[in-house]
Nucleic acid binder design. Structure first.
Lengths: 203, 203, 203, 203
DNA sequence: CAATAATCGAGACGGTACGTCACGTCTTCTT
DNA sequence: AAGAAGACGTGACGTACCGTCTCGATTATTG
């Protein structure tokens, strides 16, 4: 029995290790440039230049612009991914919708819109977006709804995903189509209209 | 009195008139290439080549890729823009949602998603999309809803745009995020959940 | 019978014609950079930049650096390619050797050495060098020697090319190996040593 | 008395000694790649990879590609550098010229041409070539010629270097310009033409 | 019916960014 | 210390499109 760290032996790869400074600088300048130029006009050349990094270093670690933007985006969003509060499903969802309305109106909202937009020409990007952003939140939200169904807070014969799409759809639609303002009152209005349809029919 | 074309003061400009063959060929190849490559990878160079047209001819009539795509899109969508049926608001909207679900699943759906996607990096494009596609339909739909409010079919203290966003939001969300299937049952499910919240409270 | 220029009908190709300004600027900056940096360090990027020309314009007309350098070289050398004087073979060759000694010591000499040097790693370049530079001069020189053989000025059982290699070999050797000075006296020294072996044995 | 290594003051540096396997592998793969790709396309990256060696190991011992190639070249040529036979100057030189004709036609000839070619863009390389290859042989050849002048075998008022350039010039010229074949008969032809000019005038 | 004028195709132009390759240097662990 | 492995910033490669610009040819209206 030795003091060798068990099977967590990290087995360092040989060679010079990846520079964390470079990685961070790249992700940061990606995010900054993304906010001012949009996805299409965003060039790897400019990202590398602003990060003080060789272009090859970018290509060494990210296969294309989409993956790089996704990682930059996820890194920025990470803190926001959790559903923080607890309480009745109704209260939690209401607050969560308000929170995302604020996020959609912040610079991050522009990035989210850009990522979804880019995903329309880049299936890989859209898949990454689903996997890293949509699905984690959906999973938590579905759990919340199922629990609410069990307790009788909402009707139990509904598909959780459909409910979520009805609640969040208006927010995304206004984020992406910009046909109407995405103001702080919208979540409340939406909720008030939708809620009656969710409650059990007979008290 | 001369053979001047009557009073329909067309004031033909001198010089060779615009070639309608070229115009059609350009719009058609734009649409075709758009469906197979997405907006970003769509190049004017390729459009002109496929249309058998000089590049300058494209640039003479459309200022940029976005406008060209918009015109190609609107030309293709034109027939679908009207709300055809009449009857109770409930019935009309229900059918209209089903109809758009079908369109979203057709090749045209891909084009719509592409146009919205491109709009995220190109404000001009998004504005053209709103003006030429969203607004005409909204206007008709708003009228329909206001009439239904007047007759007491739905509650009168609601914002028509919010209602429309709740109904169509899930469709657009699935079109753009592709996180779940956009099948023919969705409109019914959405409608059944939302409708109770729209009806007048006390019978 | 019309005044149509016969079959010399130039049949212009369609499209914008090649820019002669660009062509000249490229050849000139090639020559200038070649003299200061050598072949290896000569970059198409730098040539294009100095010529105020797009890189693609260079690549449109020359497949690689070697061909470009060859054309620049030949353009510069063109005026020197003729054997100008006439008289006895002995006198003509003697003067020609002196002339090339001067050329080898001029900036053009550096270019010639560079071209031959580059040819060692680039067979295509060497072939172009032979075709465009060596062979034209050889042809004239061979003719001169054959005439001198006919008149009995030099022995008739010798291979003209061998004679030329003996006479010019020392010049090229010093140009390329730089092991000894290539001064103005060398041609005379070489000529005096070689000449006895060229004259008919018995008068 | 200590375990100090005796008086054979080799003063070994501390640390791991240089790997002779690595050195040989590098020189060998340099030579092999040189024969198949030419100097320009020869990359340190490829040499190191083929030798199974880290790039830094190459750079630790050779400052640049030119020096590395020179050492590889000299190592290969070393055995050929001596003038082996003795006898009359005429006979020795005649045989030496034949010998180099054979060498020039062997794979080594390609390497020599490559080295001279590379030297045209790399003064350092040319200097190394002179120092390590040209000069040693010249020194011996000059001595031979001066002895022949002393014995009256050849005229004494000639510059040995000029003579050598006349004799070897044609060989180098054909090696480098490839305008004519460098066959085994050439040395004899050259020698027969040049020799009369070397012999004393009056018998 | 010629002159004028705008459009057409073709394709060259000066640019910008692409994604790749090798450079020569560096940082890690191993020998 | 020297080794291999391999990441680093740098810079040129050759390519693809950008949007603009000449060309000659074509097709209309105007004098």
């Amino acid at each position: 029995m030795s003091k060798v760290s068990q099977n967590e032996s990290v087995t360092r790869t040989p060679g010079r290790p990846r520079s964390q400074e470079a990685r961070k600088a790249i992700l940061e300048s990606t995010l900054q440039l993304l906010q001012k130029t949009g996805f299409t006009d965003l060039s790897i050349e400019a990202i590398a230049a602003r990060a003080g990094v060789g272009k090859a270093t970018v290509y060494r670690w990210w296969p294309n612009k989409a993956e790089l933007v996704m990682e930059a985006f996820v890194t920025a969003v990470e803190a926001e991914l959790r559903i923080p509060t607890s309480g009745s499903a109704e209260k939690v969802i209401r607050e969560q919708m308000k929170r995302w309305t604020r996020i959609f109106n912040s610079p991050l909202g522009k990035v989210i819109a850009t990522v979804i937009g880019a995903g329309q020409s880049d299936p890989e990007m859209l898949r990454a977006f689903q996997r890293q952003y949509v699905e984690p939140r959906r999973t938590e939200a579905r759990k919340l709804l199922r629990e609410a169904m069990r307790t009788g807070e909402i009707r139990s014969n509904l598909d959780p995903d459909t409910i979520l799409d009805i609640l969040y759809g208006p927010l995304y639609m206004r984020l992406l189509l910009r046909h109407a303002e995405l103001n702080s009152e919208l979540p409340g209005l939406v909720f008030d209209i939708v809620m009656p349809g969710l409650r059990p029919v007979d008290p």
